[in-house]
């Protein structure tokens, strides 16, 4: 009966943590010295974490990427950037709360920050639509990217979405066109672009913020053309086979790095980003800063040519 939500494979860790908490409580109440026991148990917890997180299966990785305590875009905005001022709306239909964006500073330097936003509880998730954008979300994102280009500021995007929202309104208002237009226009923008997959990189809804000079991924994030559940339902004819689909799809950060899609994997503190928001944020800030420095140093033409070459080389084919 843990108070904090946790994943199946985390149960042992949660138990040890609870024992530690109980011990601390007891020590305080009775005034006894438990420091030796405490050290022992903390070491045990650390070992357990190390081992578990070194051996995560692909479907475990998916679970960590979706962990209910994992930091979301706004949590990183508070910890990585300063002076954030949110901007709303696509100027034609409405403001989509599943994508947030606005001016922010990294180490004092101004940039445009855009990211998918999930909700922490049910009420927030209804407002944020579980981080699944409608077309107006992609259009807001594009509007903000063009704004950044106008003032020669770089764009940083945070990717964290189960995917585009499959609903009537989203289709009516042309989500295919909205995503497509982002892909084409991001390829053209005359300003540096960096995307960071912080949790779930779900298909077209993710890619609509993802055509960038650099693609970074947090260690326990995933990026996939389809959810393992969706893939299993189609190819294995049952979502129960999602572990097999997760394996086959090659969707972990190390897979994407090996396949040449992800430029750099940002290590998370052992135990995952959800156990250490500040630690993860610090690593993110350093890596992001380094990539932006490199990109700002290039001319717009040079950067765009490299971006085109990068995307046009993606894929695996044989010329028989």
């Amino acid at each position: 009966m843990a108070a904090t939500p946790h994943l199946e494979f985390e149960r042992d860790m949660v138990e040890v943590q609870e024992q530690i908490d109980q011990l601390l409580e007891l020590a305080e109440k009775k005034g006894i010295d438990v420091s030796r026991e405490l050290t022992e148990m903390r070491e045990k917890l650390q070992t357990l974490r190390d081992e578990t997180y070194r051996n995560l299966s692909p479907i475990d990785q998916v679970q960590v990427a979706r962990h209910p305590r994992r930091p979301y875009t706004k949590d990183y905005i508070e910890r990585v950037f300063t002076d954030f001022i949110e901007l709303h709306g696509d100027r034609s239909y409405r403001d989509d709360a599943a994508i947030v964006g606005g001016w922010a500073r990294l180490d004092g330097e101004p940039l445009m920050l855009i990211g998918h936003q999930k909700g922490r509880d049910m009420k927030a998730n209804l407002h944020r639509n579980f981080g699944m954008p409608h077309p107006e979300g992609y259009r807001k994102a594009l509007r903000l990217m063009r704004l950044a280009e106008k003032f020669r500021r770089p764009v940083v995007t945070f990717i964290d979405t189960p995917g585009a929202y499959p609903g009537i309104g989203a289709e009516k208002r042309g989500q295919a066109e909205a995503i497509a237009m982002n892909l084409r226009e991001m390829a053209r923008l005359r300003t540096p672009l960096v995307s960071v997959v912080i949790g779930e990189g779900g298909s077209g809804g993710a890619l609509a913020l993802g055509v960038t000079d650099r693609i970074l991924m947090l260690e326990h994030s995933i990026y996939s053309v389809i959810s393992p559940e969706g893939c299993a339902a189609i190819l294995w004819r049952s979502a129960d086979h999602r572990d097999k689909a997760a394996e086959a799809l090659k969707l972990t950060s190390s897979d994407l790095h090996r396949l040449g899609i992800c430029d750099e994997v940002i290590d998370e503190p052992v135990g995952g980003a959800h156990t250490d928001w500040d630690g993860t944020s610090a690593r993110l800030r350093t890596t992001l800063g380094r990539h932006l420095q490199e990109l700002v140093a290039m001319s717009d033409d040079e950067r765009r040519k490299l971006r085109w070459a990068k995307y046009e080389a993606m894929g695996a084919w044989r010329d028989r």
Partner: peptide, 26 residues
Amino acid sequence: GARMMEGIYSLMQMAKTSAVLARMHE
């Protein structure tokens, strides 16, 4: 749609084809 048997590569073909169209557009 995308061919899921090619995983992330199939998703990236969307970006790739759109990048070429960006150049044609210009």
